[in-house]
Design a protein around this nucleic acid. Structure first.
Lengths: 197, 197
DNA sequence: GGTTTCATGTAACTAGTTACATGATTTA
DNA sequence: TAAATCATGTAACTAGTTACATGAAACC
C-alpha cells in the first residue's frame, strides 16, 4: 500500500524510533520512497494499533525519551504477504513533462532555465549515487542478501537519474534557445475571450 | 501545482468537456500525469470558479449534454506564470524498489515473479510508445512547436520505460532464482517476540 | 439482450503536505 | 548567543482514490 511497508522493511533490518526512521529515509529506501516525520509518526501509531509493530519507551539522559519500535510476528507475515502480492506499477508524475508539453504557452527562455535547473539537480543526485556505488559496493559480483538488495535499489536510482539527465539534455538540444515567449505573446491579441469577469 | 496546469495545457490546445479531457489523458500528457474523471470534474469546477476557464453548456441530440471548457485570459497568464516558475523535481515512488529492498523478508520466487510482471508491463508500454514514435514522428528533425513538444514528452516516456525494463532485467540477473523464501522461514524461530497478542 | 460509449456527478475515504509547538542539549 | 540536533507530536489542509449512481444510445 505504501509507507507502512517501507517502514516494515526498514524496521526489519533494525528497530528504531520515528525520528530515526525519518533520518534513515534520507538514504537508501528514500531514493524511491520518502516521507516527512509527521507522516511517519502517524503511520507508526496506526501500525502499532494493528499489531504489526510494538513500541518500547526508552528513557535517555541528556536527550529526550524515545519510543523504539520492533516488527512483531504479525508485521513480519504482513511484509512477506505484501512482497508476494502483485502490485500495480504506480503512475509516474513529472511536472517538467507537463511544462514541456505546454511550452507553446509560456516563456521559452524561462522553460529552458527550468529544464537546466532540473538537469543540474538530477545530475547532482546522480553523482551522490555514483559515489555511494564506488565506496559501499566496490565488488558487486560478491554481494548477496541485504547488501545485494541495497545495491540493486541504488542501481535503480542511478538508472532513473541518468535517464532524467539525458532526457533534459535532449530537450535542451531540441528546444530552440532564442526567440523568447514568441508563441505566448503573439497569440494574446486574436483570442476569443470568454468568462473571467 | 498539479492537475490544474495539466488541464490548462490540454485545454489550451483545444477546448473540451471533462469527459473528453479524461479520454485525452490516456495519451500524451497522460504518460506523465494521469487522473480519474471524478478528479477532473472536481478540478474543472474549481478552475471555473477561479476564472481560469469558462464552461459553455452544449446540447446534443442522440447523446447527453456536455459542458465545454475554454481557457480564459486569466487561465492563459496563469499557465505562462506556472511554466516560468521553478518547481521541485517531484519525489519518485516505486513500490517495486521497496519490495526489492525487503527481499530478505519475503518469498524469493514470488518476488522474481513480481519483477517479471513489472518488466512485462513496462515493456508493453515501451512498445506502444515506440509505435507512436514511428507512426507520428517519422522525421523528428523537421518538428517544431507543439509537435516537437509532444515528441519530447514521448521521448521522456521511452527513456523512462527503457530504464525500467533494463533495471528489472538487472534485478532478475542478480537475484538468485532457486531457494524459495529461505531467509523468511529460517528466521521465524529464533526471533524475540513482542506485542501482537 | 448485454456490453460499451457518452456524460456528469456525489460521498466517503486514504494519503500526503504544511504550519506550528515544545524543550533540552550540543556545536559553531 | 545563535543555530543545529534530538525527539514527538497536533491541527488544518490539499490531493487523489474507490465506490456508487444515473440514463440514453450505439454496437454486437
Amino acid at each position: 500500500m505504501g509507507l507502512e511497508h517501507a517502514l516494515l522493511v526498514s524496521l526489519s533490518e533494525r528497530s528504531g524510533s520515528g525520528y530515526e526512521l525519518a533520518r534513515r529515509f534520507d538514504k537508501s529506501i528514500g531514493f524511491f520512497w520518502n516521507a516527512t516525520h509527521q507522516q511517519i509518526y502517524r503511520v507508526l501509531k496506526r501500525m502499532d494499533e494493528a499489531g504489526w509493530i510494538a513500541g518500547e519507551a526508552v528513557t535517555q539522559d541528556g536527550r529526550p525519551d524515545k519510543k523504539v519500535y520492533s516488527v512483531s510476528r504479525a508485521g513480519r507475515s504482513e511484509l512477506a504477504r505484501w512482497i508476494a502480492e502483485p502490485s500495480e506499477p504506480g503512475a509516474l508524475r513529472s511536472e517538467l513533462a507537463v511544462k514541456v508539453r505546454g511550452a507553446a504557452h509560456g516563456d521559452h527562455a524561462a522553460l529552458r532555465a527550468e529544464v537546466t535547473r532540473h538537469r543540474d539537480r538530477h545530475h547532482k543526485r546522480l553523482e551522490v549515487y555514483r559515489l555511494i556505488e564506488k565506496k559501499d559496493f566496490p565488488d558487486p559480483a560478491a554481494l548477496s542478501g541485504t547488501g545485494l538488495h541495497q545495491y540493486l535499489v541504488l542501481r535503480g536510482g542511478i538508472r532513473v537519474e541518468t535517464g532524467f539527465v539525458e532526457w533534459c539534455d535532449e530537450i535542451l538540444a531540441a528546444l530552440p534557445p532564442g526567440r523568447e515567449a514568441a508563441a505566448a505573446h503573439s497569440r494574446r491579441d486574436q483570442s476569443p475571450e470568454k468568462g473571467t469577469r
